[in-house]
Design a protein around this nucleic acid. Structure first.
Length: 285
DNA sequence: CCCCAGTCCTGCGGGC
DNA sequence: TGCCCGCAGGACTGGG
């Protein structure tokens, strides 16, 4: 589930360890199928031990730990991965530990219940090749209406499906795609090439508005309770969801029941009244 | 170019 | 009451 706001919250939580040195890296004895760690743990250990953490960045939905050597440790949480400085929700699913040196001690943990996530170590050049601008679109937090329009203006795809394509825009997942389209008053099945200039403007504005607000609330912890920040605390944005997961409940603006459809094998939630296919409403809320 | 189905994985909830 | 199936979806792959 972690999308841009959740990964950004993880990143900010990790900023407290900038300047610290890594004393050890160990794969933890999770009894389940191991997550992907590349290179293998012994090789990875040789390249990270003794390195200091220069910065913690974000590439779309990935946390990027920048080491003094220039190597980048890229943590990709996918559905249930967490980056933790505190005790995990369930120690059974701890996957990797980066022990920090110094009198404060402490560790960075990677925890992942379903284990779909990965941890990879890249050189600067590898990072640029794997997660550079041609692999990852502009960040959703700072993208402009022109970014979207120039990349999708001639596409026949449905706007909701296109927003999930990380090569178009980086950081948007199923939850926030639904929320920003609602705020922009755009029907999720509307073809990209049918969007007006005004709608692209509203979409870009809605994207930054929704994502920034979600970051202020430290992301969304859904019913399964999986997502937590680096200190193992819940997010708060789930209480502000307007459409996601609210099928049958009233639209906060017009009161009509929120509907659910399936696009590209994923649930899409929206309000038929406020997100018309033809002439859409003015910006919502 | 784009779509679709399948893959990974665990927990949970609906249905019988 | 208990069990099984399907769903949740981020990224990727292979076929059309």
């Amino acid at each position: 589930m972690p999308e841009l706001p959740e990964v950004e919250t993880m990143r900010r939580g990790l900023l407290t360890v900038v300047g610290r040195r890594i004393a050890d890296a160990e794969r933890l004895a999770c009894p389940r199928k191991p997550i992907a760690i590349r290179p293998r743990i012994d090789h990875l250990r040789r390249r990270v031990v003794g390195q200091s953490i220069d910065d913690v960045a974000r590439a779309g939905k990935r946390v990027v730990v920048v080491l003094t050597s220039g190597d980048r440790l890229v943590i990709e949480p996918r559905m249930t991965g967490l980056v933790l400085l505190a005790d995990p929700p369930d120690p059974l699913y701890l996957r990797l530990r980066l022990r920090l040196s110094g009198r404060n001690g402490g560790s960075i943990y990677y925890w992942d219940r379903r284990g779909l996530g990965s941890v990879r170590l890249f050189t600067e050049a590898q990072f640029a090749a794997e997660l550079g601008p041609h692999k990852l679109g502009p960040d959703a937090l700072t993208m402009t209406a022109d970014d979207c329009r120039s990349r999708l203006g001639h596409s026949k795809r449905a706007i909701k499906v296109a927003l999930l394509d990380q090569t178009v825009v980086a950081g948007i997942g199923n939850l926030y795609a639904a929320e920003m389209l609602y705020v922009a008053g755009i029907h999720p099945a509307k073809r990209c090439d049918k969007l007006t200039r005004r709608e692209w403007d509203r979409l870009a504005a809605a994207a930054s508005e929704v994502l920034e607000e979600a970051i202020r609330y430290e992301g969304s912890t859904l019913g399964d309770g999986t997502y937590r920040n680096a200190l193992n605390q819940n997010g708060g944005y789930q209480n502000l969801h307007r459409v996601y997961g609210r099928e049958g409940q009233p639209c906060p603006r017009c009161g009509a029941a929120i509907v659910r459809i399936v696009q590209a094998q994923r649930s899409t939630f929206f309000c038929k009244g406020c997100q018309a296919m033809r002439q859409s409403a003015t910006k919502i809320v």
